[in-house]
Design a protein around this nucleic acid. Structure first.
Ligand code: NAD
Ligand code: NAD
Lengths: 252, 252
DNA sequence: GCTACTTTGTGCGTGCCTTCACAAGCGGCT
DNA sequence: AGCCGCTTGTGAAGGCACGCACAAAGTAGC
C-alpha cells in the first residue's frame, strides 16, 4: 500500500461509485477546509521529526472526530498503513497536491490601510504558497511605497498588473463603499477567486468565487452565545452535554 | 460550490442542548450567522429610509435563497406582512434583540502587533456593540501605549482587568506559539467566548466557545478551487454557480 | 506460519440544513 | 363588499455531513 502508484491520480480505490472520469472526484467543501488544518499540523509534526501519526493523534491535535478525519483523508487517497498510522511526510505532500498547493498562487491585495498593512506584512501567506505579488490603493500617500519589496500600485492599473503577474486570487481590504467597484475590476482582470474583508455582499458573475471574512459577524455569533448562556444560566437548567446538537436555545 | 456558506466554525463547546427551558427557542447555528448579515443590510436600508423590504429583495442583497431567508426570519418571529414584505426598522430591532446585541459585550484584545493594531483601530466593532475595552501584550514597547484612549496592559494582568471591565469576549492575535497560554489565562479570567486569529487549535474546557479565523485556510480553499477549475477547464465540466458565503468553517 | 493486536477505510443510520411548492393572509382595486 | 395579485410562513422532500461500528489489512510476537 505504501508504494502505490504515484504519478497516477490514484483514482480512489475499489468499486468507486463515482462515475470515475479522470478527476471528477469531488471533495466535500467541509473536508477541504479541514484538510488545510491537517496540513498545518502535519507540517509541524514533520518538523519535529515524527515519522507516522495515527488518526487518533491527528484528530486530537486538530480537534476533530477521528472517524471524520479518516474519511477526509480517504478523499485524498489511501496513504495510511493499517496497524500503524499515516506516514507524515507523504501524507503532507499528498494533501498539498490535492489542495493544489503545489502550484503557487499569486495573490493581489487591494486596499493597503490598517488591515491591508497587516495582511501585506504577514509572513504566513508567502510561506505557505501564497505570495502577495501585487498591491493596490488610491491614496497618493500609499501608492508608490514598498512593502516587503513589493510596490503599491494605483488601482487603475489592476487589470494590467494582475494580468502581467498572473494573479489568481484577490484580497479586498478597502472600505465597504469601494469594495464592489474594486471587485468588478478584479473580475475584469480575470481573477476568479476573491477573499473579501469588506462588510458588503459582493455581486459577481457565476464563474467567480467569493469567500468573505466578516469579523463583525463572528463577534455577533459569539455575542449571541453569551446572551444565550446568560439566560440559560438564570433558569438553572443545566447546560448539559447532550447531543452535539448544533442548535441553540434562546429566550423569547 | 461557491455557495457553501456554512458558518459553523467554532468549537461546539459546552453542549448547546435543548433543555427545554420554558421560554426557549432553538435557532440553527447556520441561521444565526446569516441573521447577522441580514442585520447589516437592514441597517443600510433603514438609513436609506426604506420602509419595507420583501424577502426577495433582501435575499438578493444578502446573496441567499429567499425561502431560506424567510425560514431564518421565522425563527425571530413573524414580523412580515403578507403581500407587502417586512418592516425594516422593527425587523432590524427584533433581530438585534434575538442576537443579544441589545446588551453590549466588552471585548478584550490580546496581542497588539500588526493584526492587533488593525483590530484595535477598527471602528466597525465599537459601532456595532463590541467596544474593545481592554488590550494586552508582552512587548514593553507596546505595553503602556494608548489606542483610541485604551491603555495596553501587560498580559499578566489579564485576569484582573478582564474581571474589572466585565469582558465577555476575547480576541487572540498573538503569535501561534503564545496562543494557548493566552487562551488559558482568558479562560481562568472567566471569559467563555474566544475569537482566535492564531493558526493553532486551542484546547479549552467544554463550556468555552472558540471561533477561529484562519486566513491561510481561506486562501487554501480558494487555491483548491483555482486548481480544480483549471483541471475542469480541460474537460469542460461546469464551473459552479456563484453567490456569497457567510463565514469561516472550522471543526473542533 | 499462525495468532493477537492495532489502526485504517467505509457502509450505514441519523439528523441538520436547504429548497421547493403552496396554502394562508393582507392590501388594493373595482 | 368581494375579488385579485402579491408575499409570507411552513410542511415535506432531498441532500449532505457526521459519527458509529466493524471488516479488512497490516504489524508484532512466538
Ligand atoms: N481593520 C480591521 O481590523 C478590520 C476588521 C474587519 C473588517 N475590516 C474591513 O476591512 C476593510 C479595510 O479596513 P481598514 O481598517 O484597513 O480601513 P482603512 O481605511 O485603514 O484602509 C482602507 C484602505 O483602502 C484604500 N482605498 C479606499 N478606496 C479605495 C479604492 N477604491 N481602491 C483601492 N483602495 C482604496 C484607502 O486608501 C485605505 O488605504 C474595511 O472594509 C473594513 O470594514 C477591517
Ligand atoms: N498579520 C496578518 O495579516 C495575519 C493574518 C492571519 C493570521 N495572523 C495571525 O495573527 C497573529 C498575530 O499576527 P501579527 O501579524 O499581528 O503578529 P505580530 O508579531 O505583529 O504581533 C504579535 C503581537 O503579540 C505579542 N505577543 C507575543 N507573545 C505574547 C504573549 N504571550 N501575550 C501577549 N502578547 C504577546 C507581540 O508582542 C506582538 O505585539 C499570528 O498568530 C498570526 O499568525 C496574522
Amino acid at each position: 500500500m505504501t508504494l502505490r502508484s504515484h504519478a497516477g491520480s490514484s483514482a480512489r480505490a475499489g468499486g468507486a461509485s463515482r462515475t470515475a472520469a479522470k478527476l471528477a472526484r469531488s471533495i466535500p467543501e467541509a473536508t477541504v477546509a479541514r484538510l488545510a488544518v491537517y496540513l498545518r499540523i502535519l507540517g509541524e509534526l514533520a518538523e519535529q521529526g515524527a515519522d507516522t501519526v495515527s488518526s487518533e493523534e491527528l484528530a486530537a491535535a486538530t480537534g476533530v472526530n477521528s472517524a471524520k478525519l479518516r474519511k477526509d483523508l480517504s478523499y485524498v487517497g489511501s496513504y495510511g498503513i493499517r496497524g500503524v498510522g499515516y506516514e507524515v511526510v507523504p501524507l503532507h505532500h499528498e494533501i498539498e497536491r490535492t489542495l493544489g498547493l503545489d502550484q503557487k498562487q499569486a495573490v493581489a491585495l487591494i486596499g493597503v490601510g490598517n488591515l491591508g498593512h497587516a495582511l501585506a506584512g504577514y509572513g504566513g501567506f508567502g510561506g505557505r504558497g501564497f505570495p502577495v505579488t501585487a498591491m493596490f490603493d488610491v491614496d497618493p500617500d500609499i501608492v508608490g511605497i514598498r512593502i516587503n519589496g513589493i510596490l503599491v500600485d494605483h488601482v487603475r492599473d489592476i487589470s494590467a498588473v494582475c494580468a502581467a503577474r498572473g494573479v489568481t486570487i484577490g484580497m479586498i481590504a478597502t472600505p465597504g463603499s469601494a469594495a464592489q467597484a474594486v471587485c468588478d475590476q478584479l473580475v475584469d482582470a480575470g481573477v476568479e477567486c476573491i477573499l473579501n474583508f469588506a462588510p458588503v455582499v459582493l455581486q459577481v458573475p457565476d464563474r467567480v468565487e467569493v469567500r468573505k471574512v466578516d469579523l463583525a459577524v463572528e463577534l455577533q455569533i459569539l455575542a449571541f452565545h453569551v446572551a444565550r448562556r446568560r439566560v440559560a444560566g438564570t433558569d438553572g437548567s443545566e447546560p448539559a452535554k447532550g447531543a452535539t446538537n448544533g442548535s441553540v436555545v434562546l429566550p423569547r
